[in-house]
Structure formats: C-alpha cells, structure tokens
Design a protein around this nucleic acid. Structure first.
Lengths: 371, 371
DNA sequence: CTGTTAGCGCTTTCAG
DNA sequence: CTGAAAGCGCTAACAG
C-alpha cells in the first residue's frame, strides 16, 4: 500500500490525472469514462471494470470544480455553523456530519464568530453561494431571516437548532418552550415560591431568551414571585443572583444554559453557598461531558434528533438519495427550490429529556409562602 | 435591504447572475469585469467603481467552480477533522477556523468518524482532493502517514494536534511527553509510590498512547511501582482500576484523558471511594467546561497555539496573504509544493499548562514504601 | 452500448 | 488601460 512503485513503466508525474488520461489508458472515450465515474447510463461491464481499474491505478480523482461547472450543480450542502467550542454546537456539528454522511449528503462547513453584527456572516454566506451549494443549513442564530431571504429562492434553506419566524425558511429546532416549562414545573413541584430567573435578550441569544421568558412566565402564572435578572455584554447577572440567594430572597435560581449554571455554581461556592442545600439551580442543554458528576439539574436537548431531521429534510429538498440513484431529472420548476412536496414549509420542534440531577432540591423553609 | 424591487425594469430572474451579465450592465468586457473582481491588473478607477456597483446591485457572486477551473487552483485549505463532539476537537476546530479567518485562509472542513479502519478517511481525503484544495490540514489520528503520502507531492500537508513520524509531512502538535512528565512528576511529588496507569494502544489513540507510556516510564524510572492497565474496545480498564484502589494496592490512578478521568471518578464514587481522600487521579486535556468545578488535576493542552501555528504554517506554504496581494506567480517548481523556504519540514511541539485541581492529593499512608 | 460535439462561467495570454 | 480569443476538465445532449 505504501511503496507501490512497481510495474508502471512511466514514473507517473506528480501532477493531477485528468479523466482524459484515464480514458486514454483504458482505451475508451472520455464520455464512457465519465459515465463510469458517475455510475450512470449504460456501460458494458468490461468497460466499467477497466476504467475503474485504470482510474484507481493512476490515482484519479474527479475535479469537482469542472464537474460542477459542466453539470451545473453541486450536490453539497452548505453548513453555516456557530463557534463549535460551545459543546452544544460542537455536538450538533458532529451529528450533522454523521447524518449527512449516512444520507449521502456532503457538507461544506463554515463557522462564523458571533460578533460583528452579521457582516461577517453575510460574507460567509456569499462564499458558500459562490460554491454553488445545493442547499443551506444554518446552525447559528447570528444570521437573521432578512439576510437569508435573498437566497431563499435560489436554494432550500433550513435552520437547525433554532426556530424560524420567516414563513419561507424551513427549520428543525429544539423545543425550548417545552424545556423551559418542564424545568419551571420541576422547581414549582419542589415547593419553591421565590425564584430568580436569569434572562437573556433576544438579540444576544434567542434560544436563551425563549427559555428564560417561558420559565419566568410559567412561574408567575403559577403564583411564584419571580426576580428577572437580565444579562448582557459586561453584565452577567451573577452577582445579583448570588446576592438574592444569600439574603434569602430566593430559594432557587434558574439560568438558561448549563454553561451559565456552571458559572453560577462557581460563584455561589465562592460566596459560601451550596447547591442544593442553600439554593436550588437549574440550567439547560445537558450536553457537557461530566454533567452527571456535577449533578446538574437540566434538560438534555435533542441534538441527535435535530441533526437527523435536518439532514432528512434537506436531502429530500435537494433530491439526494445517497445511493447514487437518480431522483428524477425533471419536475422542479415553478414551485421554487426547496419546497417539499406540496410546497409546505417544514417547521419541526423536537423535545428534549429532563435530567433530574442534584442541583435542585426543595427550599430550606418548608415551602410555605411566608404570607 | 429586504424589499428592493425598485428601479430595475426587468424583474431580475431568481437564477444566478453571471460575470457576463455584470459586464454587460456595466458596459465593459468580461475581461475587465473579471479583473475588477479579482482586484488585480490595471483597471481605471471609473470602470472599477461601475463594475463593483453593478455587481453589488445585481447580487453577483463569483462562481467558484468556474473560477477555479479557469485559474487552475483554489485558495481554500482542506481540513480533515475528527468527531467534534469531543470537546478538545471541537475547540481545535473553532480555533482553526478563527485563525484561518484572521489569516485569510478559507477552510473546507470535513469530519470523519473514527471507526472503519481508515477506509472512510480515504474517501473523505479524495473528496477534498477533488475540490482541488491548495493545502491540507489533518486533525485526526485516524489517517495514517501512508494514506497521506500519495498526496504529499501534490500539496502541502500539515498535521494539527498530533506528531507526525513521516519526515515529509509537517506537523504542529501538543507536547504530549511534556504533559505526561509533568503529571507524573506531580504524582511523585505528592508521595505516591504505587500507581495505576491506564494505557492506550497506539492504534486506538496515539496521543493517549504517548501520554500513558511516558507517564508509566517516568514513574518506573523514579522507582514507583506501576500497574499498567491497557484498555481497548470493550474493555475500559476501569474495573481493574477501581479494584486496585479499593484493595489499597495503588494510591493513585493516572488516565490519559479527562473524559476517561470523568468515567473513572464516576466509577470510584459508585464503589464508595472518594478523590482525593481515598485515591488520587489525574487526567489530561483540560478542555472541558466546568473542569474547575470538578477540580480535575490535569494538563491544559495548547489548543489555541496549535491552531494558530498550524494556520500560520499552511498559509505560508500556500502563499496566502489574506489581503489579496499576489505572492509571486512563478517560482514553484522542482522543490515540490509545501516546502517552506529552505525545504525544511515543520515540526513544532507546543507545551500545555498544568492545572493543579483537587483530584490528586497525597496518599493516605504517609507515603513511605511498605518495605 | 459508445463516441462526437458543444458548451458550463471564468481567467488568461496576447493584441489593440 | 481594455477587449478578443482560447481554453481549464468535465458532462450532456445528440448521433452512430
């Protein structure tokens, strides 16, 4: 495998091998060679075998650029991703790749930093468009619907992991509301009546915004006293949370992400407070390795499901089959690309799983309202 | 920005806009338009301005496939990545993207699952080659030097995060030996003389193999009694570790990764053993969020540095400048691609940082050999 | 079943 | 400074 410089008379030059070279060496025309490589059309078994053998021997690999140019379309799907150092996004990325692989969809990934008010995002978007991807998966909140809209009628776009408000863009997302509800209900069941909820602004993190909003609302509806602590750049609301807990004003602090919960617990420890004895805490995500050791009470979001459904949808929209079968060369015309059969916009929400953990216990005061 | 269907007489079709369209609308030739888009050659200021304006208005984006085909070379770098659900790889991925971005290098990422004895890897490699990337960054152990070798003389290849044995492939890696040494010395300093070391096989995880091997060797050289517990598929060596600890045969267990350390701690807890009171443990990586809360004693590998150096090297090799300047259109001939000035193979090892943590304390028996 | 003939959209000599 | 012409390597109708 490693040192196979044997029978070949000519010491094959390092330069790239063209299909034409393969065809010549196999004694057929470019067309036939092409057909073999594409696995389409009718080719005699002998021809196919020969071409394949020669191609392998010569180390031929299809020039994707030329291929796409000639055929007028790529089969790869662009993936706009957010900073994968966030474990939740890293996992989503992996799962998308895995699912894509299984479905025969090649993903072209591009991460973007979430600063720079969308300007950078647009640039990445353009590069992806320049590569003439067949579809687009957007797995970052940074890009707004407006920025996506102009491309919407050139290719199918689907958001992964975040709901989409625009009626023309597909989405497979985590059911944040369900997650928020279940966490809030858990806190209520434990008997907490005074709760601090760290809230995010929609423009900073939409998922966290939804989570925190729903949690706070549900708690209030059920008669609990809620302290909303909004955080933003340069103000993480942690000090206020710790302060409220220390003064006994709240017996539980709910935050909209596990990363924040870690920070919170850290701060509480520094202040000499323990979970769940002194204060109950909940987070959200459930992705971090070692979460069980930390005993975080949280929701595990359905990353695998979201990835799987996202790929399934986009694959259908671009007509990929993964086995090389043809998905019908005609029939995509006026309806616009990316419309699933019937022109309906996909809009799925996948629920997660509650993780009991050990950071949320009953309040120290026996749970009665001080009334 | 969103609803700009104004002055244009013809309701511009949703289809792609070609450079020719731009040229026509601007009243110049394709050639001039091309020159403007490439930012090269001499074009009058008025022409440039007009072309740019029209291009923007029409929403023109360069067809990368056609461009690369015509110019015979892409400026993107392929990135072969391992499963990003592993936090260490997820972070490396992010950092590479970030560094690439800063250096003006576009990365084309592709993750691979680490099963399937390299067969899958080769397929991904081929796809990347098919995209005619200008260089290749390999950030996964799964791909062997032999598999890389055939492509070595077509483009520069650099390994990120893992050392490379082949003398022809570049590498920027973590200094695993240094990490192993420092951890082992820490254990020795604490007074441990009987230590279990979970070892990995080179073919399963080379970094973990090096770490565990070096740790064990150093411990032995210094006179400690080492129990090597090798793990492989279906046997994680955890039971043996717990058993040795419970029977007091070892006072410390060293494992070659934090993920494993988490598993170990979990198992120890289940067996009623605590760290560091009953047994000391160390891991390696230091990437996990919340590592401070868990108090893991470990080494933080230099992910950021590795990413930065990797990009710097590959950028130089492919002659990228990030500002669009030309790096000399001639001069790359016999020396082979990817050879840095002088033809030397890059081979950097970057040291990490020790993290004290709380999982490793002194042995319960006062540290004297039972002799 | 196979080969021939045109391009895909862009970059690039080479003349104006 | 600008345009005309010639492909890059491949696929896609068309004939054989």
């Amino acid at each position: 495998m490693s040192t196979s410089a044997s029978a070949s008379p000519e010491p094959r030059p390092p330069g790239r091998v063209r299909l034409e070279d393969v065809a010549a060496a196999a004694g057929v025309s470019r067309t036939s060679a092409s057909r073999v490589m594409l696995g389409q059309g009718k080719v005699s078994d002998r021809t196919r075998r020969r071409v394949l053998a020669v191609a392998d021997e010569l180390g031929y690999v299809t020039n994707v650029a030329a291929s796409e140019l000639a055929s007028g379309g790529s089969s790869t799907v662009g993936l706009l991703l957010r900073d994968a150092s966030n474990p939740a996004y890293g996992l989503l990325f992996s799962e998308l790749q895995k699912a894509g692989h299984a479905a025969g969809v090649t993903l072209l990934s591009m991460t973007i930093k979430h600063d720079d008010q969308g300007r950078q995002q647009v640039a990445s978007l353009h590069r992806l468009m320049g590569m003439r991807v067949a579809g687009l998966i957007v797995a970052t909140g940074g890009v707004t619907s407006d920025q996506l809209e102009p491309f919407r009628d050139r290719l199918p776009i689907i958001r992964a992991g975040r709901p989409e408000s625009s009626g023309r863009i597909h989405a497979v997302s985590y059911d944040e509301e369900d997650a928020a509800r279940r966490l809030a209900e858990h806190i209520l069941e434990l008997g907490h009546t005074d709760v601090a909820v760290q809230t995010a602004r929609a423009e900073d993190s939409y998922p966290e915004f939804v989570r925190s909003t729903v949690m706070a609302q549900l708690l209030e509806i059920r008669g609990a006293t809620v302290h909303r602590l909004e955080y933003r750049r340069g103000h993480d609301a942690m000090d206020e949370s710790v302060d409220l807990a220390r003064r006994g004003r709240v017996s539980a602090v709910m935050v909209p992400s596990d990363l924040r919960q870690l920070t919170l617990i850290r701060r509480l420890h520094e202040a000499g407070l323990r979970t769940p004895e002194d204060v109950a805490t909940t987070g959200c995500d459930g992705i971090l390795p070692g979460i069980d050791l930390l005993g975080l009470t949280t929701m595990r979001i359905a990353v695998e499901d979201v990835a799987e459904r996202t790929i399934a949808n986009i694959a259908r929209m671009i007509g990929a089959t993964g086995t090389g079968d043809d998905a019908g060369s005609g029939g995509s015309a006026e309806a616009g690309p990316g419309d699933p059969a019937g022109g309906r916009v996909v809009h799925e929400r996948l629920p997660g799983r509650f993780i009991q953990g050990r950071t949320a216990g009953p309040p120290r005061t026996t749970g009665r309202t001080p009334a």
